[in-house]
C-alpha cells in the first residue's frame, strides 16, 4: 500500500508528490515542509520531481507518524494509515534545533 496518497479529485489515484515519496522526511514541527534525502534539499509536501519513488508500507520498519508526532513500528503503522494519518520513513530534524529548545528536566 502506498502511503499518504493525496485525496485529490481527478483521474489519477496517486499524485506523485514529496509527501508520498520514500525519499522525503517532513519537519516534525511544520510537516507541510520537509527534506528530500535524494536531492539534499528542503521541499514542500506537494512538490514533485522525476525521481519520485512511492512510499509503501513494509514490514520490519519504523515510521514517523506526522499526525501523532511519534514513531510507530510497521505493526501499528497500518492502523494509523487507515485512519488517514501521514506516515514517513523519518522526520527531518534541523541541525540547529538545539538552539531552539530548552533545559527541561
Amino acid at each position: 500500500m502506498v502511503l499518504n496518497v493525496l485525496q485529490k479529485r481527478g483521474p489519477r489515484g496517486l499524485v506523485a508528490v514529496c509527501m508520498n515519496c520514500r525519499y522525503w522526511r517532513p519537519s516534525p514541527h511544520y510537516p507541510y515542509a520537509g527534506y528530500c534525502i535524494l536531492h539534499g534539499k528542503v521541499t514542500l509536501e506537494d512538490d514533485s520531481c522525476s525521481m519520485h519513488s512511492p512510499l509503501r508500507l513494509k514490514r520490519n520498519q519504523f515510521y514517523w507518524c506526522s499526525s501523532c508526532k511519534t514513531r510507530v513500528s510497521s505493526e501499528e503503522a497500518g492502523a494509523h494509515a487507515s485512519q488517514g494519518h501521514k506516515l514517513y520513513l523519518g522526520a527531518y530534524v534541523e541541525k540547529d534545533v538545539r538552539e531552539e529548545i530548552y533545559d527541561a528536566f
Binding site: 519537519s27 514541527h29 511544520y30 515542509a33 520537509g34 534539499k41 528542503v42 521541499t43 527531518y92 534541523e94 540547529d96 534545533v97 531552539e100
Partner: peptide, 15 residues
C-alpha cells in the same frame, strides 16, 4: 524559495 532562487535554508527558522 522562489524569491531567493534557492531551496529553503531552514523550515522552522522561516516559518
Amino acid at each position: 524559495a522562489e524569491a531567493t532562487e534557492r531551496p529553503l535554508a531552514s523550515i522552522s527558522r522561516t516559518v
